[in-house]
């Protein structure tokens, strides 16, 4: 009877948790920090971009957010709340920057951010997208943040409320006001925008 070869264990190494990576980052492990960056950069950038109405400085602010974390990773006591912490720091930095240097209106920013091809069929869709972006940009900052976290980043109301350091009821109120404002802003062009949306999907 032959000796059976030992079963090879699964070679897939589980992804280290945020807590593990933070602990390593606290020991100045840049590789661990790079993993945290790749895990959370997109969400933080998306939020900052939205809060800054597509301003080109969004990348700089996002970087400053992560550098703040790198300066003292131990400042975050609950590693599970890292994403919320980053979003909060990012939004605070946006507010600070807006106080020092008012941002451009979205009319300019949308042109910078929108790199859609100018093909005939996509023109209406691009215009509709810009109209929606403008309507969101016109909302107050807290409403914009709630919209961005829940609708664009797919956070649950509970997580978004924790990120914004408000109660779930307060978050829902912010979302309701934001949605009401958006409806008022977009209702006049509703048919045109929905038609453009349908065209874009064809």
């Amino acid at each position: 009877m032959g000796i059976a070869a030992p079963a090879t264990p699964a070679t897939a190494v589980p992804e280290p948790s945020d807590a593990e990576l933070l602990a390593r980052a606290a020991e100045r492990d840049q590789q661990a920090f790079a993993m945290l960056v790749s895990r959370h950069y997109r969400v933080v950038y998306g939020l900052v971009w939205r809060l800054m109405n597509g301003h080109a400085d969004a990348e700089d602010v996002t970087q400053a957010t992560f550098l703040k974390l790198w300066s003292d990773p131990a400042q975050l006591r609950d590693a599970g709340a890292l994403r919320g912490w980053l979003c909060r720091v990012g939004s605070n930095l946006v507010t600070d920057r807006a106080r020092r240097k008012p941002m451009n209106p979205l009319d300019e920013a949308a042109e910078v951010a929108d790199a859609s091809p100018t093909a005939e069929g996509l023109m209406a869709g691009a215009e509709a997208r810009a109209a929606v972006d403008r309507a969101i940009a016109a909302r107050p900052e807290r409403q914009k943040m709630a919209l961005s976290l829940v609708h664009m980043n797919g956070m649950s109301n509970i997580d978004a409320a924790a990120t914004m350091a408000v109660s779930v009821e307060a978050l829902e109120s912010l979302l309701a006001r934001a949605r009401r404002g958006l409806k008022e802003a977009l209702v006049d062009r509703k048919e045109e925008l929905l038609a453009a949306l349908a065209d874009g999907r064809e």
Partner: peptide, 21 residues
């Protein structure tokens, strides 16, 4: 409104942004 919100721009992370960071 949800259909229109789905239209909103989801910004792509600029190329090389993480490396720059």
């Amino acid at each position: 409104l949800d259909r229109l919100l789905a239209l909103a721009t989801v910004p792509a992370v600029p190329e090389g942004a993480e490396a720059r960071l």
